[in-house]
Structures are given as structure tokens and as C-alpha cells.
Computed example of a mutant assay.
Amino acid sequence: MARMKNAAPMAAPEAPVRVLFPRDWTDIRGHAEIIRRLRILAAEDRFPHALLFSGMEGVGKRRTARVLARTILCERPGDSPCGICDSCRTMAAGIHPDYFETAPEARGKSAAMIRTDAIRDILVAASGAPTLAGRRIILIDGADSMNETAANRLLKTIEEPAGTAFFILVTNAYDALLPTIRSRTVRIAFGSLPRAEIAAALREHDAKNAAAIAALADGSLGKAYALAEEGLALRDDALTLLMELDTLRVEDIWARAEALGARTHEERTAWISYLQMALRDLLILHEDGGSTALYHTDRRDDLMVLLSRMSRAHLFDLLRETQELSHRIGANVNPALQAEAFLLRAKG
């Protein structure tokens, strides 16, 4: 069963740079205008029956939804949770009887999704009258991962909302939701975060290479935290490949292809994305050698060396090759053989 919680999870942080559950609006990075609008709605208590938070992964949608839930459930009227009332304390303890949350769950080797039984259970649990607050809140994280039956069951409830239930749906893939669900919710679109904002958050947690990671995170604080945990070894390996491409011998290609094939699917996908980022940086530098809008800001000197070796036509060819490699590996074709073919073509 997909996880269902009747209050905010207070588990220990998964990683040293991550703060999992926010206390109030000051724990949200960026999105000042969205927060301003939500606080006005909270102060005036005039929410629709369902909100849909959409945007790229890792920008703070779920965190914002959780702070909003705390604000609405707080016993003291206003635009922020007070932190000291019974409702705020039970939220902090993870046992608020009027807050329900579910998210995708993987079973066996199948992809994570929100299944029908999870939606059924959370709707049944939240169908009664509020116990402590003035309404009940249902947060559905990863709403785009609902299977068709689950989505239709939720749709029926949203179409005919009962009592005081208030829904917050969170998605990284707005277009993947049923059009009928989209049409019955009020969408709030979250943009990417500025690099400076991400770098500041990383520095607060003493993360190394904050500026470089902020550039690579492409607007996602969640991705930045993950990169801070993982380090930049995978990125550096992809750039080293580009630097050494002209001098690779056949036996080097075999070794590199075997090494890439032995990585996890997630690592291979990330490695290819780093390669594509570097190629994109080189194309930008071809147009504007002084540009600072680079992903690999900390490796600019290496990029300038590569720039003298690669024509624009060659860069576009390599981009097409990396896209084809990504497609073939995603289709579960033997990754080592595909990497070998890719390297042979890339070397020319």
C-alpha cells in the first residue's frame, strides 16, 4: 500500500544537507510571489476545494504544500502556523488526526505509483468530520503517478467534494494528469530556483562546491542536495571522456564502455546528462566566449581547451549521438555494447 500518513513525517534526515519537513514559510526557498498569494488566501480563509502544485522536481512544491497545511490547520487565525497550539504540536509530532498524505510506492520491480487502494484508503480515512481543526487536508504527492483507476476515483471525489475536505495535489508532470483532474483544481505553477538561492542553501549546510553544484542543479534544490551527497566524480568522469576522446585507443574504448555498462541505470543516465550539459556549454561558448551561463562553471578552462578542438558541426553530431545513446539505454538495450558503439562513433 502506498504510504498514508495522518500527519507530517518527522523521520530523521536522509542526508546531512537535507531538511525534510518545514516548520513555517521561512523554511521555503524562493517562490516569494506564490507564498505571498497563499498567505493571503490563508489569512482570508478562502481556498478552493483543491489546489494543484506543479513544476520541476526538487523546487519546493511539497515543502510549500506542507507549510500551507500547517497554516490551515493551526488553531490561531492568520497566514502562518503559530507553532505552539495543539494543532501545531500534533503536526510536529506526526499525529494530527485531520492531515493525510500519500505518495507513490514501488512494489517489487514495478515502477512507483499511487494505486487504487491507496487513494481509496486515504479518501475513506479523510471522509469523516474534522477532529481537531476546521477541515481535513489530503496531500497527494506525485499525483501524476496515480494509475487510471485511482485517478478516476479521486476525480469523482474532487467533482463532488464532501464536507470540509481540502486537497493539495503535487506533480512534476502536469500534462501526465487526467485533463478532468486538471480542470477541477486551481493550478499553482512553480518555477526553477535561481542559482544564487541554491548555492546559499548549500552553504548553510556546509556543502562543498556549492557554486558548481548550484549551476549543475538546473534550478532544482532537491537535485542540488542529491549532488552534494553524491559528489561530482560522475560529472568529472564525463568531462574527462570528452577531454580524452581524440586520443582513445580501441582498448580504452572497450574499458570505458564496460565501466559505463556496469553502472546503475541512474548513474548512466546522469553521466549522459553531464555529457550533454558539456556539449551545450561548448555551443554557448562558440556563440559567446565570455558567457557565464554555463552548467560546468567550475571547469571553464577545460571547456575552453575543448572549444579549440571541436567545431559546431561536431558538437551537434555528438549531441545527436548522446540522445541516441540515452534512448537506446532507456530501452534496456545492452548498455555496454551501446556505450562502445557510441564511443566509436564519437571518436570518428
Rank of each mutant, 00 (worst) to 15 (best):
L154R: 03
L123G: 12
R187C: 11
G128Y: 05
A126Q: 05
I158Q: 00
F167W: 09
F100E: 10
I140Y: 00
K109A: 15
M113T: 02
T180W: 03
T116N: 06
V186E: 13
D141F: 12
D206Y: 08
T171K: 07
E204F: 14
I138R: 03
M113W: 00
A200V: 09
N147G: 06
A165D: 02
I158Y: 00
S110T: 14
T149D: 13
F190D: 10
A173I: 04
T157A: 13
R195L: 08
R195A: 02
A173F: 12
T116D: 06
R182T: 01
N152V: 01
P161A: 14
A106I: 12
A103C: 07
R115K: 11
A200C: 08
R107S: 05
D117Y: 07
A112C: 14
P104H: 10
P130H: 09
R203G: 02
Y174A: 13
L178C: 02
R153T: 11
P161H: 10
R136G: 08
E101L: 13
H205K: 08
P179S: 08
G142C: 08
I122F: 03
Y174E: 11
R107C: 05
D175M: 15
G134Q: 04
A118F: 05
T131Q: 15
R120S: 05
L193W: 01
G134W: 01
H205N: 04
T102A: 15
E148F: 10
F190W: 11
L123C: 11
R115L: 13
A103R: 05
S183T: 05
T171D: 09
A176V: 03
K109E: 04
R182A: 01
R153A: 09
T102D: 06
R107E: 12
A125G: 11
L169G: 00
R195H: 14
R135F: 01
S127Y: 12
E101H: 01
I119C: 11
A176T: 12
K109D: 05
E160F: 15
I181F: 00
A196D: 15
G134I: 02
L177M: 11
I114L: 10
R203Q: 13
I137K: 02
D175N: 11
A207L: 06
R203M: 04
T149S: 07
A150N: 09
S183P: 02
N147C: 04
T157Y: 00
P104L: 15
E197W: 08
R184D: 03
P179G: 12
A129N: 02
N152H: 13
L177K: 00
D141T: 15
P179C: 09
R153C: 10
L132I: 14
I114V: 07
N172F: 06
I140F: 08
D141S: 05
K109I: 02
I158F: 00
